[in-house]
């Protein structure tokens, strides 16, 4: 089975600024990292490949420097990596981005499984995985915390975390999964992996290479409009100091927390 993992390079610090005009993140001059949730997607892909064979391909849409994130994916065990880079992709929202990724997946061909992290830490939308599934017309599962290939029919047996518990379901491949960090502990890449990744070719595909309609990519093809941004509402700052002996303070704190149902 060919497995595709979609990854994103994101700002490595929480203190990023917003462009006051476009309301988009200013990424210039900020240290970039591989989106931490995507590490779990990569780990899931590598483990499936190790257990069942097949090929693992990492793809990412982004500027030229996103190649570094793809090299990390190679160091972690991806067999090949493709950068989707075209000036016309700039400004794409989650819908246009998922269209580009879906076109790349279709171009790769014979893909049985697409794995995404649950969301990127810069936008926090969690929409790209479901968007890919919608563009491809494939079944999808989000919030995946366990994943197996069923021995009887080769379907994907997944556990999906919900607010009130867990779902267990089976998806016939090809399918799209968005995984939670509870799924696995990502491995630490080895130096030998990094050395191989440093030498590996990372092809760059533009809109033509993936057969994307230029009218469906970029800012103009993005239905999302950010009309206003602002800080979240302030947290409850109600505070009270407990002045007594340590043992009595602990007991009083316990009762207070019980009273407000914090524990």
């Amino acid at each position: 089975m060919k497995i595709v993992v979609c990854i994103k390079q994101v700002p490595g610090v929480s203190a990023v600024s917003l462009d006051p005009e476009t309301k988009r993140l200013v990424r210039e001059g900020v240290k970039s990292i591989l989106n931490p949730f995507d590490l779990h997607a990569l780990e899931a892909g590598v483990r499936l490949k190790e257990r069942h064979g097949g090929e693992l391909v990492a793809i990412s849409m982004g500027p030229p420097k996103a190649e570094q994130a793809l090299r990390e994916a190679l160091a972690l065990g991806a067999d090949q990596a493709v950068l989707l880079c075209d000036k016309r992709f700039a400004g794409s929202d989650t819908w246009a981005t998922s269209y580009v990724l879906a076109r790349a997946i279709a171009t790769l061909g014979n893909v049985g499984l697409v794995i995404c992290g649950k969301q990127a830490i810069d936008g926090d939308t969690a929409q790209v995985g479901p968007g890919i599934a919608a563009h491809l017309g494939w079944p999808q599962a989000t919030g995946v915390t366990a994943l197996e290939v069923a021995a009887d029919d080769g379907s994907l047996a997944v556990t999906r975390q919900q607010d009130g518990g867990h779902d267990r379901l089976r998806l016939p491949p090809p399918a799209v999964l968005a995984v939670f960090k509870e799924l696995n502990q990502p491995r630490v890449p080895r130096l030998s992996g990094w050395l191989a990744a440093e030498r590996a070719p990372v092809p760059v595909w533009n809109a033509e290479a993936i057969g994307a309609d230029p009218a469906l990519v970029g800012l103009n093809a993005s239905p999302t409009r950010v009309v206003r941004t602002g800080p979240p509402p302030p947290r409850n700052k109600d505070s009270r100091r407990i002045e007594t002996t340590p043992a009595a303070a602990a007991a009083q704190l316990f009762h207070e927390l019980r009273r407000i149902a914090a524990i």
Partner: peptide
């Protein structure tokens, strides 16, 4: 540190 950039 880990990273392919200027690794050699």
């Amino acid at each position: 540190k880990h990273g392919a950039e200027t690794l050699t």
